[in-house]
Structures are given as structure tokens and as C-alpha cells.
Design a protein around this nucleic acid. Sequence first.
DNA 1: AGTATTATCCTCGTCCATCGAGCATACTCG
DNA 2: CGAGTATGCTCGATGGACGAGGATAATACT
Lengths: 409, 409
Amino acid sequence: MTGPTSAGRRETRWHLALDLLEEVRRQPGLTRAEAARRLGLGSGSATEIAARLRSHDLLVETPAPISGRGRPTTTLRPHPRGPVVAAIDIRYEDWRCAVAQLDGTLDHVATERHASREADAVLLQIAATLRDLRRRYGHRLRAVSVAVAGTVRRGRLEQAAAMGWGPVDFTRILPDAAPPLLVGNDATLAGVAEARTGAGRGAQTVLHLTVEVGIGGVLVVDGVPISGSGGAGGEYGHLPLGDRSLRCPCGAHGCWDLEVDGRALARHLGAPPPADPRRFARAVLADAARDDHARAATRRVAAALAAGIAGLVNAHAPDVVTLGGLAGPIRAAAEPEFEDAYLRGLMAFRRLEPTPLHTAALGEDGALTGAAASALDLVLCEAGLAAWAADAADAARSGQAEGYRPRTR
Amino acid sequence: MTGPTSAGRRETRWHLALDLLEEVRRQPGLTRAEAARRLGLGSGSATEIAARLRSHDLLVETPAPISGRGRPTTTLRPHPRGPVVAAIDIRYEDWRCAVAQLDGTLDHVATERHASREADAVLLQIAATLRDLRRRYGHRLRAVSVAVAGTVRRGRLEQAAAMGWGPVDFTRILPDAAPPLLVGNDATLAGVAEARTGAGRGAQTVLHLTVEVGIGGVLVVDGVPISGSGGAGGEYGHLPLGDRSLRCPCGAHGCWDLEVDGRALARHLGAPPPADPRRFARAVLADAARDDHARAATRRVAAALAAGIAGLVNAHAPDVVTLGGLAGPIRAAAEPEFEDAYLRGLMAFRRLEPTPLHTAALGEDGALTGAAASALDLVLCEAGLAAWAADAADAARSGQAEGYRPRTR
DNA sequence: AGTATTATCCTCGTCCATCGAGCATACTCG
DNA sequence: CGAGTATGCTCGATGGACGAGGATAATACT
């Protein structure tokens, strides 16, 4: 009489449906028959699962383009009234916001310059946008994920040196009746995106490294970022791979951070520490083609970057390394020195098949894409789907209570 | 008529039973009622699952010691005719073998000195032992796992410098009708053991580091080692944290390896490279209390070790670091210098609560315990249990077939 | 155009892991 | 020895998943 409402039951309830959704997510526009084949489903199960996903506004089926003989099948796509997540990327000069459906594709990407770079002002703007999204999507908005260039621990931003922020509590940005909030380091999230859908796609273990001011990154295994206790890992820039006599703003000495970015280029050129190391670095890299000093400085930085990458390849044996931010341009500006330092830093047995280094494929969308992906992870799990189904049921019930709805569902 | 024999069905079939076994494994001697509570099982499900595990010779229930009122419950223990795995640890002077039951406790630990250190000779001895185990346990022997101090990639030993071995194919050691074979790096496996049942127990992310000749280790997340492509990771010793002018036997320069072991101590003392760096290191550490030169060398090595550990803590943010091999003694021999270098290497915000460094709890059993654990992982999964059940059914059927059974299977 | 071929989809009866409720059981405590 | 308490077992119900077989919708061939 009570029905299968227990927790244990609920958890297994969406098992295969979830697998199907994951397939669709991995390959948007997948055909239903193909998905069933991949999951090893019989046609009966496929029918049942597809029907359930349709009736819960999770997927729609549209006739697939026909190819060859046989009865045509349908393609599976996110439902137009299905769950969505919001992804936000806070950058130095602006912030971006996007909405993503179940397949992870970004919609409504909007970029807005900071009116003020103060944390309060930025958060206020974001909060207004989220209120708007909440109005527009209602309970369809299932999660919010924020990417920011700072140290994130236990879902809190501890510091964002680039923005000049101290600890920030992001829960303020949420509207009432809030969906779950995730906060993540931008390089970590970009790494997740590159590993799943970017230059590391298909690889099991991906090391993603980004040079902006200093160097950040993450090791991603099977699409999951290895980011340690409370998510505070990924500070590869603070491995002591550099000159021990240099003190890092982080408090340690000899950090790799100090050898690979605009600050390092300035030091090598005898220039004072630049106010905007990124801009400075781009200028020096552009000069490297004709200016001897710029070229020499670039080569030193390229070698320091490549040697560190080789060390990390030794330590972690990734299948592929993806390079974001300035790492690609630095490599390109001093290709021979970079490759030489990389190979020389590898253990001999790894040199036969050196781990490939790829430039990040998602460019500046990386962090935003990764934020969307991590938010979707919250939706596309058994608990998330169960909550979605329960919400829909609640909505239907309260709709009845409000008046006109016949109760025969 | 055909019954639920499909693959998809099989997989979910052992789901809860598996969870129960995992609980028993995590805490041997767990009581049945307690296990049901932890898994959120109703008493009906608990009864069914326990009955199935009993009937498949996986668990036995013995009356639990009674405490307080109420009906007494039973304790769950591995079945005396249940599946077992073999764990082997190949070390410099000897090799060890043990058998483990489902709860991971080691039985019949035997140590045997190498008659010859040649790979062929060692493998021959091991093969004989495994044939013996196979005879004794028959199909109960479900997996064999070998720990060895070398580079393992895709299940093959690429090289074991300490033993003087090149590539070795371990499949030779298996008897006919062989159970699956796993080969793993000893430091990696010791890390798995420390993280699950040793000094890192309870922590989510554990960094295990072992100093023997050079330094090895692994990051273990939720009990799973992060060992990269083909398992060739964990070569932390080949991060370029050391003096770039020193060439490492691995082919790279400035490897951390060269700064933290007996070779480093010898270098600092002006002695020639020792034939047995471990023995040499122990001697120097013992002298450090009274000999100034030994003390100075020890301090340098301790500082190099601690600074590198701090860098890795920055990079990975583990919940705890476990120190195996000589790492503990080196730390103890120069405690102040070690702690100072560790703290100074941490990023400032980590110094408020420095990640704890614990001496490995399993001592020389670490690799063996980890090998057993990784072998058990093969058994305690849905496919493993399904295979076990199928084997038992086959045995019963062939037993019948050998006599009077009609062929109408 | 009509039929064969192919591939997919749907319906139906079955199976069984899991569930909760209620009863049975086995111990301690007073 | 009964009251109290905690656990185990039996039972009927549920619903996700399954396979078989028939229905369906396209192309390919004659």
C-alpha cells in the first residue's frame, strides 16, 4: 500500500534511465537505437525508459534523418521544458553567464563588464541575473555553478588574488528557494571541460595546465577532477620547481608560478613587476619574433614551463596534457626550446612515446563549460533525477489544488 | 522460460549484496544488524541478502557476543570455503606471499629469500608456490596480485632498477586455468593499503610517499590509486625539485629522487655512491646522533624531503600524508629541520592547519596488504561475484556430469 | 507499383530484487 | 517468570527490467 518510496528503492530507480541520459550527454543528437545498443538494452527496456524520460520532460524524440534500409529511429534531445543549470565565470575584467541543458551545450551566453571590481558589486550583479533566471525558468533551474580564479575550499572562496578578493561567501548570489550552488576554481573547471569534451576527450587521465598569472591546473581522471581535500588542490604553481631564492606571494619559496608568466618575463627583461602580467606577457610574446631580449626571455620561460610539465608527466603519467591560457602561445613562441626542455625532462622510457601536449580546444569557454558540466553532474545522478521527478509531481499536485485541474492526472 | 540471465540484469543482481560485503570488508566482524542499519536495509532485505551470501559460500554468520537486552544478532565473517586471493611482494632480498580472504586479512604469510636474484629464478619459485596454492584452493583462488619495486605499465613490468631487471612478463608465474593476474608498483600498493586500512584510514585523499632508493608514492582518492595511463604514474621522485646539474639514472635532470635517499647522503658526505643505498642510509641516520657530518647530511636530506612534500601538499591538498620506508626515520633524525622546511614550503593559507604527516602504519606489510586489497577488488565487484556464483554452479553441474547425470543440462 | 529486406518499435507475460508490515524469536532485566 | 527490547523471518505487493514475437516504416529490388 505504501508503495516503493523508500530511499534505497529510489536510488536504483533511475539507474538505466541515467545511463541513457549520460550517453545523450556524451554525444548530443544520439539516436535511440544506437543508445540502446551501447547500453546493451533490449528493445522492450529501451521503450520503457524512453517513455519514462519523455513523460518526465527530460528528453524529446524527433525523427532521425534516414540512412539506409530499415525502420527509421529517432534522435534523443533535451526536452524544451527539461531541467537546466546556470554557469557563471568570473574573470578579471568581466563575468559571463550561460544556461545549459542536459546535453551540456551552452545557451544564452552573456558577457558583462564589471562596473566595479569589488566583490560586493560583482556579486550583486550576479544575484540580479540569477533572480532573473529563476523567474524565467522556475523549478527548471536545478543548479548554479560559479567558476572563479581563486582558491576554493569546501565550497567557499578563500581568496582570489587576481581580483584582490579575500574570503567571499557566494551563497548570497542565490535567489530564494535556491537551487544548489557550486563554486570551483576556473582552471579546475576548464580542465574538466577539456577532459570531457575538449582536447582531452577520450583520454582517461588528462593533465590540464593553464598559465595566466602563475599557473593552475588539475588532473582529471575519468572526467572527475582530482582536487583534494575540500577541492583546494590543483595549485601546481606552488610546487618548488623554480629558483629557491625567490619568494612567492603565496608565502613559499621557489614556486613554479614565478617562472612561467608575465612576471617571469619582466624579471628576465629587467623590467619592474607588471601591473597586468597577462597583457605584459602577450606583448613580450608578440615581440619575440623580432626582439632578441624578448626572445631570450620567452625561451627561458618556455623552458621552465616545459621542464615542469615534463616533471608532472613523470609523476602522473597522464594520457594527454592540455594547455590553456598563455601556455599555448608561450610554447608556440619558443617551440624548439620548449620541445627540447620537455623531452629532456621526461624519464627515458617515456621518451619513446612522449605524452602529447595539446592546446586547449575550448578556449575562453573552458571554465564556463566546465562549470555547466559540474552543475549537470548534480542533476544527472539518481538523487537529482528523483528530485526532479518529485518536483514535477509536486507542481502537478499544487496545480490541482489551485483549482481547475481534473484529478485524473 | 529463459530466465533473467542477461548481462544487464546480472550486473544489478549483486548490488546490495556487494554493499554488504564491502561493509564487512571495511570492518571485519561487523554485526548483521549493524550492517543492515548502515546500508538502510529493511529486515526483509537483510534476511534475503544474508541468505544468498550464505548459500553462495561467501559469508558465515556466527552468534554475536550478547550485549544488553534484545534478541542477539550474528557477526558476519568470510566463509571458510569462500573465495581467496594471493598476494605477492617481491623485495630486494626476499619475496613474500600471503593468502587473503574477503575481509582482507592476510593468512599464511610466508617469506622466502631469493636463491638467485635473476628474474627467471625468482619467477620460477613464485610459479611453484602459486601452483601449490592452486592445488590447495582450486577455484577458490580468484586472483593473484604481485607487488614489485619497478615501473609497471599496462599490467607489465617495464623495469625494476633495484632488482636489475628489464621488462618481465609475469603471466608465466600463473598455473594453468589461471585466475586473473595483477601487477602493481609496491609503493602504489602500499599507498592503497595505508589509505584504506593504515595511517590514512578515513581520509578521502591520501598522499603516500616512500623513500627506499629514491622516492615513490601515490595519491589515493577514496581508496583508488591515481596512477595514470596504464598505471605508470606515481613517479614523484622524478619531479625536478632538485639540483638541475645532477643527472638522474632515469635520464632526466634534477630529480627529487637524488636528494632524499642514501645516494644523497653519500654525496653530501663526499662518499662514493653506495652499493646498497638503504643500508647506507640507515647507518648514516644511526650516526646522526653523534657525528656532525652525518647530522649535517641528514639535515640536508630531511629538508629536501620535507620541502618536496610541502610542494606536493600544495599541489594536491591531501587530507593526510603517510610516510613509508626511510621517510619516517629521516624525519625523526632531523625533526626540527624537517618540520621547518615543511612549514616554509606550504602556501601561507595552508599553514594554519598544516596537513598532517603520519608514519605509515602497516610497516613492511604495506605492499602485501595493498596487493591483497587490489586483488580483492576484482572479486568484490558485480562481475566478480557473478563469476564466483557461476563457477560454483558449474562445479556442481560437472560433479553431477562426472557420474550419472543425463545430458539435458 | 508491388514485394522483399532490413531495422526498429511496441505489447505482453514473466521474473525477481526489494520493500513494509506483522508476527515470531531470543535474549536481559526486574 | 513475565515485561521489555532488539532482531529475524514470512508474506504479499510493487515495479523495473527482460525476451519473444508481432507490428511498423523505411529502402532496395524486380
